[in-house]
């Protein structure tokens, strides 16, 4: 028996909104420690990794490890029907060929129940090595969203360069060029609005803005996002998910392969 109940059901809604257009089908791996998912987009340029700790749920029971393969667009479509204040419960028997989703509006005496068919997916699982990144940038997630959105009006790719004097995001296209320079913020009065930049070694790398705009759909999950970069390796864009007490209950990490000069 598998059962996971999330009182803040909007977290599940937001996670699905953040991955459904990037990955069409994927498997959730459920164990006593929590639920996780790893999948590449169809063109194999990016990888998304989601983790939700068992502690992050209000009730969590997993008697046996389960792999729940499903169409994420269908799941997102159903979960979209849940209200933002709804409690969401996911249930599956051990030999599941479907899962049950239960939505309970907090103030009402109603229960909405949906069943979703499961799929057998032969998904490739990638081993991601521990990496000491040369550059780590923490910035407000809405700022990152805006940088990606605005620069994609000009060009298809962004060049991120980080050196002692700060980080620059730049792009060029047919109509011209644009760039955004970020400096570390001085005070920690508003941690959500802070920009912190750690540079071990300067880097300059280019990435497709199309994917970064996809990743920015996770903005509602966290006020801050981190970008980790090293020469010639994929960029990591991480949104850490917190509960009401500000404890970490999971994350969405997106990995994006760099563009290289031919």
């Amino acid at each position: 028996m598998f059962e996971a109940r999330m009182v803040r059901g909007f977290i599940i809604k937001r996670i699905l909104e953040a991955i459904k257009d990037l990955v069409s089908e994927a498997s959730w791996d459920c164990s006593t420690s929590g639920m996780s998912l790893q999948a590449m987009d169809t063109s194999h340029v990016s990888l998304v990794s989601v983790s939700l700790k068992a502690d992050g749920f209000d009730k969590y029971r997993c008697d046996r490890n389960l792999t729940l393969g499903m169409n994420l667009a269908s799941l997102a479509q159903i979960v979209k029907a849940a209200g933002n204040d709804d409690v969401i419960t996911i249930k599956a028997p051990d030999d599941a060929d479907k899962i049950t989703l239960i939505f309970e509006p907090k103030s009402e005496t109603e229960t909405w129940e949906y069943e979703i068919k499961l799929m057998n997916l032969d998904s490739e699982y990638l081993g991601i090595p521990e990496t000491d990144y040369s550059v780590k940038i923490n910035l407000p997630s809405h700022k990152f969203q805006r940088i990606c959105r605005d620069l994609s009006q000009i060009g298809d790719s962004v060049t991120i360069s980080a050196a002692k004097d700060g980080v620059r995001f730049s792009t060029t296209g047919d109509l011209g060029s644009g760039n955004v320079k970020l400096n570390q913020t001085a005070s920690a009065d508003k941690p959500d609005e802070a920009v912190t930049i750690k540079i071990e070694e300067p880097i300059i790398l280019s990435f497709a803005l199309k994917y970064l705009n996809h990743f920015a759909r996770a903005t509602a999950l966290s006020p801050q996002v981190s970008l980790s970069l090293s020469k010639d390796v994929p960029l990591v864009v991480e949104y850490v998910i917190h509960d009401d007490d500000d404890d970490e209950i999971g994350y969405i990490r997106y990995y994006l392969a760099p563009k290289i000069e031919e």
Binding site: H44, V45, S46, Y125, L126, A208, A257, K259, I260
Partner: peptide
Amino acid sequence: KSSQTRIDSFFKVL
């Protein structure tokens, strides 16, 4: 001219 690399060329398939 830059070209897009693939993510599975960086990480090993398990």
